[in-house]
C-alpha cells in the first residue's frame, strides 16, 4: 500500500468514525442514564437524512436541510418520549428495546409510504477537493471529521462543566440517589433523549451525501452502531470514541483490501473483546443493574 493510498484510507476511515460516533454516543449515554436501548434512534437517523434530502433538493441548501432534520427528529422524539418512554423507564431494558423496535418499524413503513422504496441521492454541499500526501480528497470528509471533533469537545464540556451535565453523570452512577437530592430525573431523561435524537438526526443528514437515502438505511447501520457501543462498553463516552475510531479504520482498510472483510471485521473484534471483557473495553463498573 502506497503512502497516498494509505492517507486516503485513513481519512475515509476517520469520516466513518465521525458518523459512527455521532450515532452511537447518544445510544451509549441513554443506556447509561435511563437503562434503555433505544432502537428508534435509527428512525431519527433516517428522518434526519430524508429531511436533508427534501430540503436540499427543494430549496438547494444542505445546511438548512440538516437543521430541519434535527428539528423534525427532536419533535418526533419528544412525542415518542412523552407518550411511550415515560411508561417504559421503570421496566426492564428488553421492554424499551422491543417497543422501540416497533416504533422504528412504524417509521420505516411511513417513510416507504411517503417517499417510496427507491434510494435517493443527496448532493454533496462542498464539492472542493484538497491534496494531501499525494492524493486528492473531498473537503466534505474533513468537514465531517471536524464536526465530530467539535461535538465531542462540546459534549465533554457540557458533561463536565455544566450543572445539568453533572446531574447526568450523577444519574449514570445512580438514578435513585440523584432523584434523592431533589432533582427531577425525568426532565433530565427527556433532555438526554432529545440530545441523542438530535445527534442521530445529524449523523443521518451528514451521512446522506456519502451514501444514498433509502427506507432501510436505519436498519443497515444498526448492527455496526451497536457493535461500536458494545465494544466501547455501554454507558461510556470514552469507549464509544475509541471503538468508533477502531471500527472506522478497520472498515476503511477492509474495503481497500477485501470488501467482505470490512463488514465482518467489526464482528470479529466484538467477539475478541467479549472473550477478554464481557462488558466492553470501557464498560463502567457502576452499571450494575
Amino acid at each position: 500500500m502506497s503512502v497516498p493510498e494509505l492517507a486516503g484510507t485513513v481519512v475515509i476511515g476517520l469520516a466513518m468514525s465521525a458518523i459512527f460516533f455521532m450515532l452511537s454516543v447518544g445510544l451509549s449515554l441513554s443506556y447509561g442514564l435511563m437503562r434503555i436501548v433505544s432502537l428508534d434512534q435509527f428512525l431519527y437517523y433516517s428522518v434526519g437524512a430524508y429531511m436533508t434530502y427534501v430540503v436540499t433538493s427543494q430549496a438547494g441548501n444542505f445546511w438548512l436541510g440538516l437543521l430541519t432534520g434535527v428539528i423534525a427528529s427532536c419533535t418526533l422524539a419528544l412525542t415518542v418520549e412523552k407518550s411511550l418512554y415515560r411508561r417504559i423507564y421503570e421496566k426492564g431494558v428488553m421492554f424499551s428495546m422491543i417497543t422501540s423496535y416497533g416504533v422504528l418499524l412504524v417509521g420505516i413503513g411511513a417513510i416507504k409510504y411517503i417517499w417510496g422504496l427507491v434510494p435517493r441521492p443527496v448532493m454533496t454541499p462542498i464539492v472542493g477537493h484538497v491534496s494531501l500526501l499525494g492524493t486528492t480528497l473531498p473537503v466534505y470528509r474533513f468537514v465531517v471529521i471536524g464536526l465530530a471533533v467539535v461535538l465531542y469537545i462540546g459534549l465533554r464540556l457540557f458533561l463536565e462543566r455544566t450543572i445539568v451535565g453533572k446531574a447526568i453523570r450523577a444519574g449514570i452512577e445512580d438514578v435513585d440517589k440523584t432523584e434523592g437530592l431533589g432533582i427531577d430525573v425525568y426532565r433530565i431523561f427527556t433532555l438526554v433523549f432529545l440530545l441523542t435524537a438530535g445527534l442521530s438526526a445529524l449523523a443521518g443528514g451528514i451521512h446522506a451525501p456519502l451514501i444514498m437515502v433509502d427506507p432501510h438505511m436505519g436498519l443497515k447501520i444498526i448492527a455496526t452502531a451497536f457493535m461500536i457501543v458494545i465494544i466501547g462498553g455501554l454507558g461510556s463516552i470514552k469507549g464509544t470514541v475509541v471503538s468508533s475510531l477502531l471500527i472506522g479504520q478497520v472498515m476503511a482498510f477492509g474495503f481497500t483490501i477485501w470488501a467482505p472483510a470490512a463488514e465482518m471485521a467489526p464482528f470479529v473484534i466484538m467477539l475478541l473483546v467479549f472473550l477478554i471483557r464481557p462488558t466492553g473495553l470501557y464498560g463502567s463498573q457502576y452499571l450494575r443493574r
Binding site: 443506556y31 436501548v37 426492564g92 431494558v93 428488553m94 428495546m97 444498526i222 448492527a223 451497536f226 457493535m227 457501543v229 458494545i230 455501554l234 467482505p260 463488514e263 465482518m264 467489526p266 464482528f267 466484538m270 467477539l271 467479549f274 472473550l275 464481557p278 462488558t279 466492553g280
Partner: peptide, 28 residues
C-alpha cells in the same frame, strides 16, 4: 461466548450476529 454476557449485551450481540450471518451467506 454469548451466555456469559449480561442481558443487554446478549440481545445486541445476537442482533449483530444475525446481521453478519446474513452478510456471510449473501456476499462473503
Amino acid at each position: 461466548l454469548f451466555v456469559r454476557l449480561s442481558s443487554s449485551y446478549f440481545t445486541l450481540a445476537n442482533l449483530a450476529l444475525c446481521a453478519i450471518g446474513f452478510f456471510v451467506f449473501q456476499r462473503a
